[in-house]
Amino acid sequence: MDAALLEQMLLGALLALSVYLPLRCGQLSLATPGFYAVGGYVAALLSTRVAAFAGSGATSPLWALVAEMVLGGILAGLIALAIGGPVLQLRGIYLAIATIALVEILRVLNLNLPFTGGAMGIFAIPQPFEQADGYVLFTLVLLALACWLCQRLEVLRLGRAMAAIRDDELAAASVGIDTPRTKLIAFVASAVLAGVTGALAAHFLNAWNARAGSFDASITTLAFVVFGGSRYWLGPVLGGLVLTALPELLRPVGDLRLILFGSVILLGPLFFPQGLVTAERLRGLGALLGRAPQAP
């Protein structure tokens, strides 16, 4: 398979995990693309305006990429921390709409702030890897790390608190779970993951503009999770991989491509209301492999 497509799929899976984290706690946040855009701008600005980050050789230094990802994650996390307290008091569709509003506000800021390059955005972002293969390996490591952390959540107290809030927030609070704090942790973790992914994506895509974080992206990333299944981390990863690849794989059908993509989004939830990865299918898979998985 084409390495560039594979890289896009891996990035899609990371973004899907970012949407999954608050959802694991029952919070429908569509803010992921906003934080993704913020992370990307951090990387784009640092690597094109600061000489040390751009490096002097054919490729920019790897430490610079890692530093940008850390900084992008931190900035996104700080924004989430600042707004999370009041925003997470909202529930259900209200929270979803507030996060759409956040994405739009960030998009308008990115479009108009004096240092983000306007509608054209930022070009010629230096490459830390000579070929797409380098990105794929690097992103695979990142994705594996994110998946491992999500798997750890299944057994950690924090993860169980999140699941309890998803199932019944009032009941969770009544048994002593600090629900505002748990929800905030999930929201900030989601933002950090999106910011880190954005910083990486900005290098891979070579250019970054305000379209990176738009309403369309909000719904597309939500579709990843709904399509794959929101109960277990494997669902969003699968959804992100498949739905990112789909429009590219459909390229041969030309103009019908997006119509078919829309049909998949329309029909997917009708035929798989729980998503592709459900607890039963996981158990079935576990039995097939001869051991019980730690599925919820």
Binding site: A96, I219, L222, L256, I259, G262, V264, P269
Partner: peptide, 23 residues
């Protein structure tokens, strides 16, 4: 089904309509 799914299915319908217009 979970009403949340209607966000996705209706968006799918919207994507189809918009691209049908373009086509």
């Amino acid at each position: 089904a979970d009403p949340l799914l209607a966000l996705i299915t209706s968006l799918g319908a919207g994507v189809i309509l918009v691209n049908l217009i373009q086509l």
